[in-house]
Design a protein around this nucleic acid. Sequence first.
DNA 1: AGCCGCTTGTGAACGCAGGAACAAAGTCGC
DNA 2: GCGACTTTGTTCCTGCGTTCACAAGCGGCT
Lengths: 217, 217
Amino acid sequence: MIQPRPRTIPEATVARLAVYLRVLTALADGGRSTVASGELAAAAGVNPAGLRKDLSHLGPCGVRGVGYEVATLHDRISRVLGVERSRACVLVGIGNLGTALSDYAGFGTRGFEFVGLFDAAPARVGRRIGGHTVRPMEELEEVVAATQACIGVITTPAEAAQAVCDRLAAAGVRSILNFAPVTLAAPPGVDVRKVDLSVELQVLAFMGQQRLVGEPA
Amino acid sequence: MIQPRPRTIPEATVARLAVYLRVLTALADGGRSTVASGELAAAAGVNPAGLRKDLSHLGPCGVRGVGYEVATLHDRISRVLGVERSRACVLVGIGNLGTALSDYAGFGTRGFEFVGLFDAAPARVGRRIGGHTVRPMEELEEVVAATQACIGVITTPAEAAQAVCDRLAAAGVRSILNFAPVTLAAPPGVDVRKVDLSVELQVLAFMGQQRLVGEPA
DNA sequence: AGCCGCTTGTGAACGCAGGAACAAAGTCGC
DNA sequence: GCGACTTTGTTCCTGCGTTCACAAGCGGCT
């Protein structure tokens, strides 16, 4: 029993697939039925050849001489990314950033559902945000077990992040998205993805100043 | 006149340098005076050899047999990244995410100063956040010119992002950090960096589900 | 029906980042 | 003073991601 489609899709490709999916949604709303790789690549900001190679991981899904059917391609990518299935997520740390994420409309339409918001500060417990009530940290394990949540999002201060990570992992969460500015250590089988807003700004600023010395024109 | 140090530092290295800088700050606060590459790499979550290669871009800055002097290395990285100089930033779109960013303490200590907060909604104009008052969009060009702001952060809804990007670029902003879920087109000389929270979650979820089929044990 | 133009899908080459291994160098102990 | 140990800085190499270029295939036109 061979596997005609290698199960390993590069991480960079997965990230771009999510972008293509969003562009396709916009095209479908605009009434377009087909789109060529060149146009789709331009809208996504990538190279046309790279886009075709990305899509080739899903098997043939275009028509030569015509392009890609918007609806079909949208469904195909949705299925591969698992957008159709609902994923239970918990969010710990309901500060400004946590509030922003829990309210963010882009998550709900992509299969992510926040089933629990947690904060250690008693003043924040009980607040209602986007249809959910902020719970105390004591209920974390209980909610994760009850909802089978598999994704945890950490938006706590840096000092609390590692402890929260440990509790999430112990409770059964398998994937963690960390916004706290620390590098987290997680047990094997749990993978952590980090988003560091400060680092993004720093890189941007460095590239800007480097461009100034490189092209003094 | 040769250049003993190649001016091109890889982008991936720059991102890690920012992480090292934060770890070094924590070590200095803890009273440590020297640190070896192994320990520093563990704290930053990278390979020791990779860390040494990153630091080699700054020229020799360690002592063989001992390690790196915390204070010296901190200063060296700070100077390369340009943390010492203050950078004026403007932020457009004061929703939940914009509010979170403008309040984020991690920026001020890294040389980034928000000199203007803007929003199109009259209801938000006039609010005071973190020592600044939200201004109407009409004042954008004026403030950018007066403050020589070189960095713009976009946290508007997707529909408004491209128009804001155009106005920022026209006003003289050279670097843009985009949180809106669209791919922006900017004129040459302006570079855009995108942070897509939805994509991050999507990649995390995909890797999680892929791991399940890969290791069914 | 046959030809032509357009677009996809794939194979090859290039460049880059990451990891491992090794030589240089400095310090500590004797 | 000298040897051995520790740690840095560098070099090589492997693998991955990206880009270019071309053959295969499909629709439309004559």
